[in-house]
Design a protein around this nucleic acid. Structure first.
Lengths: 162, 162
DNA sequence: ACAGGAATTGCAATATTATAACATTAATCT
DNA sequence: AGATTAATGTTATAATATTGCAATTCCTGT
C-alpha cells in the first residue's frame, strides 16, 4: 500500500508509476479494459496530490495529444476510474484525485489543505466506525460516505500559513 | 433544540415556524438583517427535510412572487444563510437544507436516504472526535468538515426499499 | 427631515461543471 | 470474416454558479 500521507518532498514519479501499475494489474484481474485514454487520464489525475477538475484534465489531455477531446471523453474515463475505485471524487471541490489504496473497497476520507490544496487520503477505521455507530442508532443503513475535511496541513502550518 | 431526526409523519409547519423564529432571533442578536428575500428562501429551504437545489428554489420563489428573480438573488440569499449557519450545503448533491441547530457552530454531518432523499442532520460528537483524532495524528488543523452519508433510512427500510 | 454612505437587490452576461443522444470506430467472440 | 459488444467521437445542451455594474433600500449622524 502506498503512503497515505505524501511527504512534501518525495519521488512523485514513483507514486504515478505505482498507481498506474496497480491499475493495470487490477483491471487485468477484473477483465476490464484500461484503455489508452483511461490510463492517460489516470496519469493526469496522479500528476500531483491535488484534486483536479474535469476541465483541467481536458486541457492537460489536449496538450499531450494535440487532438482536442470533448467533455464526454473525460467524464467517461473518470466514471470508469471511479467505478474501478482507482480515483475518488471530491464533491466539495468538483474534482478528482487518485486513490492511494485501490483494490479494497472503501469510501474516501480526505484531509484537504486550504493552502497547498493537497488532499491526504485517510484510512480511518475510527471515522468509519463512528459513522456506522451514528447511522445504526437511527436505523440507517450506510451505502457510501463522503468525508471531506478542510484545514491546514502540517507542512503549511510549519511555514506559518495558518 | 429541534428534533434532529424528523419523524416521518410530523407537524412540519412546526419545523418551519421554529426555524424561522430561531433565525429572526439570531439575526437580531447578531445585528444582521434577515430581509424578506432571505426569510423567504429560508422558508423554502425548510419546505421539507430534503436538500433542495438553488434553481428549484428559484422556481419556488417565482411561484410565490409572480416576479421572476435571477440566480444571483438566490445565491446571495443562500450565502447569507450559510454564513449565519441557518442552512447547510450538501456538496455531494449541490443542494441546501435547513440547519436543525443554528446558533452553535458545527459542521454538518448528514445521513441522506437514497429513496426518500431525506437528510438527517447528526450532532455526532463521536464523528467529530474521530476526525480530529485522525487529523491531529497528521499534524492537520481542521477548519471545517463535510460528512455526507448515503444509504437507506429506517422508514424506507421498513417499507422494503432496500 | 435629510444628505451621505453602506448594504442589498436587480439585471445581463457569462463561467463552470456535467450529461444526453446518436454516429463511428475498435475490440472480442464465435 | 461476420456478428456483437464496448469504447470513443461529435454536437448540442442541461445544470450549477459567478462577475460586474446599475438601481434601490436601509441605516446613521446631524
Amino acid at each position: 500500500m502506498p503512503t497515505a500521507v505524501p511527504e512534501h518532498r518525495h519521488d512523485h514519479q514513483h507514486c504515478i508509476d505505482e498507481a498506474v501499475g496497480h491499475a493495470r494489474q487490477l483491471c487485468a484481474e477484473r477483465g476490464v479494459r484500461l484503455t489508452a485514454i483511461r490510463e492517460q487520464v489516470l496519469t493526469l489525475v496522479w500528476a500531483n496530490h491535488q484534486p483536479v477538475g474535469a476541465y483541467r484534465l481536458l486541457e492537460a489531455l489536449a496538450e499531450q495529444s494535440e487532438r482536442r477531446s470533448t467533455p464526454p471523453t473525460i467524464y467517461r474515463a473518470l466514471d470508469f476510474l471511479l467505478e474501478q475505485g482507482l480515483i475518488h471524487r471530491i464533491a466539495s471541490l468538483n474534482a478528482f484525485v487518485g486513490c492511494t489504496d485501490p483494490g479494497h473497497h472503501h469510501s474516501g476520507h480526505f484531509l484537504i489543505c486550504k493552502h497547498c490544496n493537497t488532499a491526504i487520503e485517510l484510512d480511518a477505521a475510527n471515522i468509519d466506525h463512528a459513522i456506522s455507530q451514528s447511522a445504526q442508532q437511527r436505523g440507517f443503513a450506510v451505502d457510501s460516505q463522503c468525508v471531506e475535511v478542510v484545514g491546514s496541513c502540517q507542512h503549511c502550518r510549519e511555514l506559518g500559513h495558518d
